Amino acid sequence: MSPDLPLIWAGLLAVAVLLYVLLDGFDLGIGILFPFARSKEDRDVMMNTVAPVWDGNETWLVLGGGGLLAAFPLAYSILMPALYLPVLLMLGGLILRGVAFEFRFRARRRGRAFWTRMFAGGSMLTTFAQGLILGGFIQGVTVIDDRFAGGQFDWLTPYTLLVACGLTAGYALLGATWLMLKTKDDLHGDARRWARWSAAATAVLLVLVSVATLLVHHRVGLRWGVDVAEMQIRWDMLAPRLAIPGLGLVGLGLVFAGLRRGSHVRPFVGALVVFLSGYLGLAVGFMPYVVPYAIDFRQGAAPDNALGLMLVGAVVIIPMILAYTAWVYWVFRGKVDAESGYH
């Protein structure tokens, strides 16, 4: 029996995107929180907490984007024209924050202030653009004869703006809880306060996005067993899926309980669980589509011989990436202060 290569590659890309969101989310969150830091020294420590890992975290974005092109070329050819502008904004933000990260440590006083603003601006631009991409993906694109047939600004709607705000709050939560894990003294206390506010904002926006998705996008609601047009709920479909928002509530509970008890680890774990819950909820809404709601992963997949050849490389490369990532996080474990880190 031959392996189901399109399904395997759909799973690999789904995992790659999830790992990117979880790992790069907290260092983008640190950039979002940059303007709220008290001093230059605090901002130095904030950057030092992610200096060894931030560029490695983005490996998963390269794998996700490159894998989509190679494994699902039809989907890539439809999604890229539909989302060109927010993708370009995201890439511009990633470039800006990457340059600012390196230049800030080497700049003098006035230059340092400039690159500090660029790092924060690049992080916020990247995050907001990713939110627009996500919102545009959820709401679907217009496809006729396997080609994108919509407008260049179809992705810009009140719904996508709401999703972008929700993702910004979520990344800020990841960044704040990461700082709680990695810092001490006054900066740790500031991170705890930022985590409290961002957790509250994330909870509110998560509810708003979930309700808006069910109300605005009828097809997603039907997959959850909620027929808004007919004002009906199919409990046989909805009941088993309630475990997913339940997981999100568990994550938020871990965050708030950890904040209340002064835990350094639980809030970060809880934030990761919240994102995992949201990701699983998205999967329920659009699986098995790679272009919602027009092209599924089998229709969009490359020929099996190409998928098989690429899988051989993936089997070698992905474990190496995972091993390297785990090793780096292990080597640079523990707290970071002004006397240690990246210079």
Rank of each mutant, 00 (worst) to 15 (best):
R219T: 13
D27M: 10
D42A: 12
F34D: 14
I318R: 03
F103W: 13
A323M: 11
S123G: 09
A229W: 12
G262L: 09
G11V: 07
Y293L: 13
E102P: 00
A169Y: 04
L28E: 03
A172V: 05
A243Y: 11
R97N: 04
G246P: 09
R117G: 09
V269G: 06
N305Q: 12
S39H: 05
S77A: 15
V143R: 03
G65I: 13
V228L: 08
V291W: 12
R241K: 15
P3S: 10
M46N: 04
D4E: 08
A75M: 07
A191S: 13
L125W: 01
V17K: 04
C165K: 04
G25M: 05
L94E: 04
V336N: 01
A113H: 14
V269P: 07
A200C: 07
V141G: 00
A164G: 09
G150Q: 05
G135K: 05
L309I: 10
L249V: 15
A199H: 02
I8C: 05
V336K: 07
V53D: 00
A107V: 06
G136N: 08
Q139E: 13
T116V: 04
G92A: 15
P6I: 11
T126L: 07
P3V: 10
L61G: 07
A14W: 06
G151Q: 06
D146Y: 12
F128N: 02
R193H: 13
A16Y: 03
W330L: 15
L68R: 08
A120T: 14
M124D: 06
V291N: 00
A323C: 03
L19V: 10
N48G: 14
W9M: 05
G93T: 05
V255D: 02
G64Y: 11
Y324L: 15
P240W: 10
Y342L: 02
P292N: 05
V216T: 11
L307H: 04
F153S: 04
D42F: 03
V143N: 01
